[in-house]
Design a protein around this nucleic acid. Structure first.
Lengths: 220, 220
DNA sequence: GAGTTGTCTTAATATTTGCTTAAGATGTTG
DNA sequence: CAACATCTTAAGCAAATATTAAGACAACTC
């Protein structure tokens, strides 16, 4: 996640940059409004932290300018301007949140997280050159879409979720087929076969290996 | 836009209800946490205003309970609890904003608007050569107008809004039909059939695909 | 208020899909 | 090479979905 900080006070910039980097965010900074605008034109950020009082272009105008082209990227004002009127003005200009200085760093982090919360849903699993998109229910191998049936999809997802671990047949029956007693007709083999065929995986030396006497294992 | 207010102090409820109605919102109120929870189970709101100190179920627990099933609906805490720790706790519980009492009504309105901002922009939806104009209630395919009934329209709009995601049958029943319990008579199929017929969509390889065992998915 | 029209829902039937089984082929181990 | 595990294939079957038709209901017309 890439955050842009537009702020001219060096002390605050340093403080924010360090703290947010420790939280695992990638940080880019701009010391004035026009530099900030320039950066935004040329690359995509996941979130923008904006001071109000800035050299060259002030935060409010910058916010409006960003919103002309981009309505999506969350913008958080972070400013000493703390009257209700100013808050309202900031929000009307297109900001998504408005935090008053002095602020608690912890609260800032939580408010940033709020904006990322619903984005994470792009849950996809990978195994070598295979990608599974769980929400879209799609499997790609080298960018080529492969059609799997429901069960095939679930089985493959299960193996990838447990990448690196050997999954024994009973576990698979329990978790994928919801069969909770020992009863193996060989279904798993049939489905493994189908998956390997569709994904063109060789039995030996490929992402999914057979562990004789136990089950199967996926590995990059 | 339909807002739920969960708050026990009658004075505040009245004040908010009246003010927000004047802003053009539809308002429903709940005087305690469990009544709020009940309402949320049975209908869909566009936003929830939540007090922290509530009879029966407190706001924090209610917020968490809502988020178990629903990560989308924006929740705004509106409370006299104003320490940083409490703010953080509220946001961590899944709230999207946290406003401290006493608050400015104008600021509240602006903060509410922030959450609706990106929703309204979906005034017309597109899927391939199909265009839907939500305000005028019109569907075009290649500039030719297609007459859909209310439900057909809603179902199609729902699928396009969730373009790229698989919509399972229960979600569709909940969000389009507002049926909140498992009860499938096959209505969805009938309507899908109608939509496909009217829009002349082939079952295989077209914008709307059937995901066997789950539901349907729209994709350009 | 009876009849008309259009939509929604249910139910019944047709069709398709994919799950499961079983049985023979192939491979592995001691 | 026997015993066992896994692979592969194909056919029957069950479940999910598509399709059609008919009844329920509401809004509108005469």
């Amino acid at each position: 996640m890439h955050i842009l900080i537009v702020e001219d006070e060096l002390g605050i910039v340093q403080f924010l940059k360090q703290g947010l980097q420790e939280e695992g965010y990638q940080i880019t900074t701009a010391g004035d409004g026009s530099k900030g605008f320039e950066l935004i034109q040329n690359q995509k950020f996941d979130l923008i932290l904006l001071d109000w009082m800035l050299p060259k272009i002030n935060g409010l105008d910058l916010c409006k300018a960003i919103r002309v082209k981009d309505q999506q990227t969350p913008i958080i004002f972070l400013t000493a301007k703390d009257t209700v009127q100013e808050t309202i003005e900031g929000l009307k200009a297109g900001a998504n949140d408005y935090i008053k200085k002095p602020f608690s760093f912890e609260e800032l982090v939580e408010r940033i997280k709020v904006h990322f919360r619903n984005k994470k849903q792009a849950a996809n699993l990978t195994l070598g050159n295979i990608t599974m998109d769980l929400t879209r229910h799609i499997v790609l191998k080298d960018k080529e879409e492969i059609a799997l049936t429901q069960r095939e999809f679930e089985l493959l997802a299960y193996l990838i979720e447990n990448k690196g671990k050997v999954c024994n047949r009973n576990q698979i029956l329990r978790d994928v087929w919801e069969i909770n007693f020992e009863y193996d007709t060989g279904v798993i083999d049939v489905f493994m076969n189908a998956i390997r065929k569709k994904l063109n995986l060789k039995i030996e030396e490929d992402y999914i290996k057979t562990v004789r006497g136990i089950g199967y294992i996926a590995n990059d």
